[in-house]
């Protein structure tokens, strides 16, 4: 592979520099979350005080609970909607007309700038008088999580040989049995990684939540944003570091599970 002609001078260096660029601010943030000084970017000594302060913060806890409720709800419902959608798009019968149009519709939330989705949802909820507290946030999240839950499912379905379904039918399994004992087990990795991506997407969302959230209902990113607006504190660093660690654990586990299942 690594034939001489494939090496382009400077490309390796750019790649490493790119990696350093992606990680430097994250590493700096984590390092300074353990700084005992209130002066944030002046190192004074190791301390976990800011983590204690973060964990004792009641508002933060409420925001975290909201984030979890919305995240889990959006994950569950977007997966529940994405699964039949992916199955329909993959139906073994001859491709139905307008399949391309449906595919575009599924991916549409990725092609509309988030801020537009945010104000559109806000206007719509106001227009129909929908006020379900964090339910409003949940509904908005379900919609833009669907493409994330869908993509791995769709990709996974493509890899399953149709002969497996045919074999099951030949053995007199009805459509429901095929679904339960063949389709779902085979799709599990796709369901799992789609759900994971949907959860992270919901959990990290800021602008849509900020716009549709009724007064007082906060999620973690909205709460952190309001803190940042009031001024940079070491406590924000600690909270951020916890969230970074959570996201990384989720991505890593999704990656590892996928790796194991595909090998």
């Amino acid at each position: 592979m690594a034939a001489a002609s494939l090496k382009i001078p400077g490309f390796g260096g750019t790649a490493w520099a790119g990696l350093a660029f992606l990680y430097a601010p994250i590493v700096i943030l984590i390092v300074f979350s353990f700084n005992s000084s209130k002066l944030i970017t002046v190192w004074e000594g190791f301390s976990t005080d800011w983590y204690r302060a973060a964990l004792d913060n009641d508002d933060l806890q409420r925001a975290a609970i909201n984030s979890l409720i919305v995240g889990c709800g959006a994950t569950f419902f977007s997966t529940l909607i994405a699964l039949p959608t992916a199955l329909a798009m993959h139906s073994r019968r001859k491709k139905f007309r307008s399949q391309q149009a449906v595919h575009s519709l599924i991916m549409l939330p990725l092609l509309i700038p988030e801020v537009v989705i945010a104000i559109a949802s806000l206007s719509f909820f106001t227009a129909i008088g929908l006020s379900l507290d964090i339910g409003n946030i949940l509904i908005a999240h379900i919609v833009f999580c669907i493409p994330f839950a869908y993509s791995p499912l769709h990709a996974r379905l493509e890899t399953i040989p149709p002969s497996l379904f045919e074999a099951a039918s030949d053995l007199y399994a009805g459509p429901w049995l095929v679904f339960r004992h063949v389709t779902v087990p085979l799709l599990m990795p796709g369901i799992f990684s789609g759900a994971m991506l949907a959860f992270i997407t919901s959990f990290d969302d800021f602008i849509i939540t900020e716009m549709v959230a009724p007064p007082g209902a906060m999620t973690l990113p909205v709460y952190i944003y309001s803190m940042v607006r009031r001024g940079i504190t070491p406590e924000i660093n600690a909270i951020s570091a916890i969230l970074l660690a959570l996201s990384m654990i989720l991505v890593l586990s999704s990656y590892l599970i996928n790796q194991k299942k595909t090998s």
Partner: peptide, 15 residues
């Protein structure tokens, strides 16, 4: 980084 919180990653640059 693709899947880590955008708000936090942006905030890190403020530091």
């Amino acid at each position: 980084p693709f899947w880590t919180n955008l708000l936090i990653r942006t905030y890190a640059w403020m530091l």
